[in-house]
Amino acid sequence: MLALIRHGQTDWNFAGRLQGRTDIPLNAVGRAQARAAASAYAGGYWEAVVSSPLGRARETAEILADAIDLPFTGTYDELIEQEFGEAEGVAVSELSTRWPDRAFPGKEADHEVAARGVRGLHRIALDHDGRHVLAIAHGTFIRQTLSSISGHDARHYPRFDNLSSSVLQFANAEWHVRTVADVPYLEAALAIERRAAEAQQAA
């Protein structure tokens, strides 16, 4: 089992700015969120913590690991957030005006994010030999990775709150989504499909 957890809040999260690869640190709220979330993962089921190399994810991971006495076993480049090029630092509310098709100059392709996400899951699983792992990463990265596994369009996935968790299980030689942002998968899938249908009707 592997839980993809979004990092804690940063000042850019609070201000509604797109972060991507820009290495914005956690703020005081983000650190408090990580400490508050730790109790949900206590009890012995989870056995290790890993993270994206970006500071906001690594610090979240280290806070969680320290709070519940788990080993922090390192960072994985595959877990890094999507590169958004010239859109990084721009207010999310301005994106649709400046780039209606979201074709940000310098943006990493969505399918590339999804592919490296799945590669990262496999590498974490191999490195941890069946242990259950908490992996601290980023909202868009998590959305693209789950989309690749479930087959649902990433555009219709929900927004991921800071410290929300999406659990995956490796069984029968493939990954399966068990929860999406703390919601059971079947319930989340119905909501995703409803949003997809609504978008199609509006087109």
Rank of each mutant, 00 (worst) to 15 (best):
A42N: 04
A135N: 05
E88P: 10
A28M: 12
G16V: 08
A103M: 08
T10L: 11
A15C: 03
V29F: 04
L79Y: 07
V90I: 15
S52P: 06
H111F: 11
N13P: 06
T145W: 02
G74E: 07
Y185R: 03
M1P: 02
L121Q: 03
Y45F: 11
I63C: 11
T22L: 15
V133M: 10
E112H: 15
S165I: 00
T145E: 02
A57R: 02
G20H: 04
I80A: 14
R58A: 12
D110Q: 05
S148Q: 11
H111E: 13
L121C: 04
G30F: 06
L64N: 07
D101Y: 05
P100G: 05
R98I: 10
E108P: 06
L121V: 02
R178V: 06
L70A: 13
T179N: 03
V133Y: 09
D69T: 15
E78W: 07
Y76T: 05
A115F: 02
S93L: 12
G55F: 00
V113T: 14
F141W: 07
N162G: 06
V29K: 13
E83M: 08
A196M: 06
V113A: 03
D182W: 04
N162K: 03
E193H: 02
L2C: 09
A135H: 06
A199F: 14
A67K: 14
E198R: 09
D69Q: 15
H152R: 07
A125D: 01
A171T: 11
D23F: 07
T10W: 09
V90Q: 15
F84V: 14
V113G: 00
D129Y: 10
S150G: 13
I24G: 14
T73K: 15
A197H: 07
Q169V: 08
